[in-house]
Amino acid sequence: MPQPVIYTHQLTRKFGDFVAVDAITFEVQPGEIFGFLGANGAGKTTAMRILCGLLSPTSGQANVAGFDVYRQNEEIKKQIGYMSQKFSLYENLTVRENIQFFGGIYGLSRQELKDKTNVLIDRLGLHNEANKLVGALPLGWKQKISFSVAILHRPKIVFLDEPTGGVDPITRRQFWDMIYEAAHDGITVFVTTHYMDEAEYCDRVSIMVDGAIAALDTPAGLKKQFNATNMDEVFLQLARGAKRGD
């Protein structure tokens, strides 16, 4: 068994009396597509912020890409990529400028930046749009560019926070093709989504309820365990029992 790329043990985060993340224990293996599900307010965002090195836990252990979340959070930030619908690209920079800006932040050299920018524009078929402002592009393209930028520095893990919200059904699937390719190249994918069909595309899925991990297995295993025909039913069964509102 290889070393897990994410490891948590009894990881807990409190805000005053409120236990946002309640003693979660799980591991994610390298190259895995790990779906991190839960209702609004279940504690996903808090857990994800801890794993990205942005927030310290109250107690418990967590290790990301071999680094400790308490002491080595700056190291963690160098090993990961992050993308969400809320924060993606600078609308008033061009596609090319965005790629170079984020690549620069992630520490790529001038030559690497030049090469990777051209490869990326080529792969996304964006020759005609490369010098256009990102703000003028459709959401689906922005999301694809944003994902590509998040893995430009070949991170060990990429965190995707509801990456496909609102995009059309074809683009949503093209986006998942990109996720599969990244995972195939060895990048671990940690993804949240409200589309339950997308949960089926994950290797394993955890479902958070009231700060705790209520279930964790492969999609097939979860469906069997909850006697459900699809992930939507699994999710409804678990999340309906939630005590804390969003």
Partner: peptide, 13 residues
């Protein structure tokens, strides 16, 4: 206008 965007499946229902 998109009252359920970004909302989890239980709350959407």
């Amino acid at each position: 206008d998109e009252p359920t965007t970004g909302v989890d499946p239980v709350s959407r229902k």
